[in-house]
Design a protein around this nucleic acid. Structure first.
Lengths: 413, 413
DNA sequence: CAGTATTTTTTCGAGGCTCGAAAAAAAGAG
DNA sequence: CTCTTTTTTTCGAGCCTCGAAAAAATACTG
């Protein structure tokens, strides 16, 4: 049962609200914050002056947009960049990247490397992460606030506690405890989360008007991933990161999936599946290990150019996605969709079939009204999502709790 | 954005916690409540004496279980039955029932009627509900607390705000605004919710050790319904009651479903589908309108007796359910299951096929560990669920807020 | 049977938090 | 230079929860 509310929780929650209001709005004044939170002006005044004294917020002195209004001008509040920093790590098939980000969300340093993840053990992968983070934190550019949190976005299934990678297509090894090792190395809390969930988180911040309480991000790539936001919350499994759209069953005992099972949506709509259908015409052929983005683009060009197996392969992919979405919509009603990744460049070939399939399902009543959007480049989204996760945690768990000031140089102000 | 916490919210929430602790535990003492809520003894003491003064709680004087312990004996707190009452209405195919329930959860009066819902308009159905509730509230037995809330459990899809029945198999009419009409008639808040969601709510109270944070109730009846609890919350759609397991797609463009579409799980596992497969062997035959429970039982007997079309029909049903569950488990991991309704009496015929299908899906790793339970009689569950919904609302929204005492005779104590 | 030990419940003052009202601050308008 | 308007801060009042101590109610002990 959830625990009672103590008196000091109250302050903590209201501090959290103020911080979150500042992060969300561009540069709100105290008055605006009072309006959005519903708290009184006096409370907001007290809390924000505390936060400024602690070096978490700052008054934006710089630009004068010349209010042109009578009365005392509003003072815009901002996040103090030096209040803290976080590290966002993105680990994907054959690629690792990391960045240090300041408290205001600006990237301070970053690095990206190619590595052959398929042939690496869990330990080797962790070592690479440790080494890269260490290079970044020790680089000269990494001045500013102390690192208070590290967030990883990885391809694959993570556990519900965000501590380890349970299974991933990028390596043959299971149960890689990234969080434990990284916490040990760097002495700050670490989370490991599924990359598609991070994509969803990022979309929320990129375009809050479109992606707010309910939406679906689908990653069309070698495999098929999904990040799901329902009722304003990231939807995860009870034990794992969940939302494995790609492994919902499209056709019982159907095409051979990379996961070894049969009939998964991914076995029709993953890059390898589209290539297999177009080039081999054999649903049971062993999935290819890797496939370049160009391979997919040329399949798409061929499909656009003339009728043939390529076009049919994209049709099957669209159909699988559409029926899968229809099944999901039976559970929680239709929601706006974002298709992310290379596959999004070929989405024009799939869209009519996606819609046609949805129309045959319970969600079909509104099939035409469902909004589709595409974003070919998933890499920045993954990083932004991991960054936001880390920053929000600092906001809510560390700074909202108060106590000591965190800024490296709190006495400057 | 969610609103800040004011000072009086604090009291309201903590009052809510105390009430909920009393409703949950059998007869907790103040000390136990302090332990479960984490609040201090003094706070619990203040709040509970307030609640007693307001006639919401009472000290259980009666039975002495002879604590056999040294020290001042604990005083058990109970819900004061006369603090309020609620009405629970259950509307199903050709059947309407309602009951008045006191604040402690005891049924005061009840009534059940058969009616031919299929041929009734929305207005006629509402009229029947109004008439039955009026009979109950005006009956002599209905002494006790004032009715503070009415909760309906209906077969079909309701809207997310729990105000109307959007679509139902029990009538050909759509969009029936039960809540508006009943509120107008009786002057108390009314909710209309999907019956399977109420079944899930009821299971939580019947067996909290088994069904708590994550579980699935599946109603095997003429159609297939589901009530889903994830992370301690009833899972509903964003616009509708959602969780329409029966209309997830099992086989694209497959068997003809009662809903007019093709390949839904229900079109393989609903009573009509099992009967159709067993007796007609034609998946495209128009679904029968009604089918008695005995029809299903005799199909099950035949299937147990010898191999043949009956056994095959149950196999197909089990397979459809299993693949459907597998797809769901890809989204949120496996959870304990309760199979409710007539179909549960034939579940022995389906279980191996359900498990075999799950084993072929992403949830399959733990397929043997997933617990199945059956409960043939869904009717009391629906009523209990509606009752609990109504009572919890009174707890949380009305009594937690405080202000005036609600008891009919608050000065008796 | 009286006194002691033990456990539960209540009482009471202290400390925090938010709120409303009023004051102070900071501009533009005339 | 004064008035008006709007934002922000200050200050006392009113709640709420907490810890400690007191009160209450029972079993144990000799």
């Amino acid at each position: 049962m959830s625990v009672g509310i103590r008196h000091d929780d109250l302050r903590r929650r209201n501090r959290a609200m103020v911080i979150s209001a500042v992060r969300r709005a561009s540069q709100p004044s105290r008055t605006e914050i009072a309006a959005t939170t519903g708290l009184s002006h006096s409370t907001i005044s007290t809390i924000s002056s505390d936060l400024i004294a602690e070096g978490i917020l700052a008054e934006a002195k710089s630009n004068e947009p010349v209010s042109m209004k009578r009365g005392r001008p509003q003072v815009a509040l901002t996040l103090e960049p030096r209040a803290a920093s976080v590290v966002a790590v993105v680990l994907s098939l054959n690629s690792l990247s990391a960045a240090i980000i300041d408290y205001a969300g600006n990237t301070v340093v970053e690095e990206t490397t190619r590595l052959v993840t398929e042939h690496m053990s869990g330990e080797a992968l962790t070592d690479e992460c440790v080494a890269m983070i260490r290079r970044l934190t020790e680089s000269d550019d990494a001045a500013g606030g102390t690192v208070l949190r590290i967030a990883m976005a990885v391809q694959g299934i993570t556990d519900a506690a965000s501590r380890k990678l349970l299974w991933s297509p990028i390596t043959r090894h299971d149960d890689i405890p990234f969080a434990d090792r990284l916490e040990q190395e760097f002495g700050v809390p670490v989370t490991v989360e599924n990359d598609c969930n991070m994509i969803a988180e990022a979309l929320r911040w990129r375009d809050p008007s479109r992606y707010r309480d309910d939406f679906i991000a689908i990653l069309l790539s070698h495999g098929i991933g999904m990040g799901l936001v329902i009722k304003g919350e990231l939807f995860t499994g009870t034990q794992s990161s969940g939302a494995e759209f790609g492994h919902m069953i499209h056709r019982p005992d159907g095409a051979l999936c990379r996961c070894g099972r049969r009939g998964c949506i991914e076995a029709y709509a993953g890059n390898y599946a589209i290539w297999r259908n177009a080039r081999l015409g054999d649903e049971n052929a062993e999935p290819l290990a890797d496939l370049s983005d160009d391979d997919i683009r040329s399949l798409a060009d061929a499909a656009r150019d003339h009728d043939g197996p390529e076009r049919e392969a994209f049709r099957k992919a669209g159909e699988a996605i559409g029926f899968g979405l229809g099944s999901m919509f039976a559970l929680f009603d239709p929601a706006p969709l974002a298709f992310v990744g290379v596959g999004a460049t070929a989405f024009d070939l799939m869209e009519p079939h996606v819609r046609a399939a949805i129309a045959k399902t319970a969600g079909g009543l509104h099939s035409k009204a469902i909004s589709f959007d595409t974003e070919p480049n998933e890499v920045p989204l993954k990083r932004e999502g991991a960054m936001m996760r880390a920053l929000l945690h600092v906001d809510q768990e560390i700074f909202a709790a108060g106590s000591a000031p965190r800024r490296a140089d709190a006495d400057v102000a």
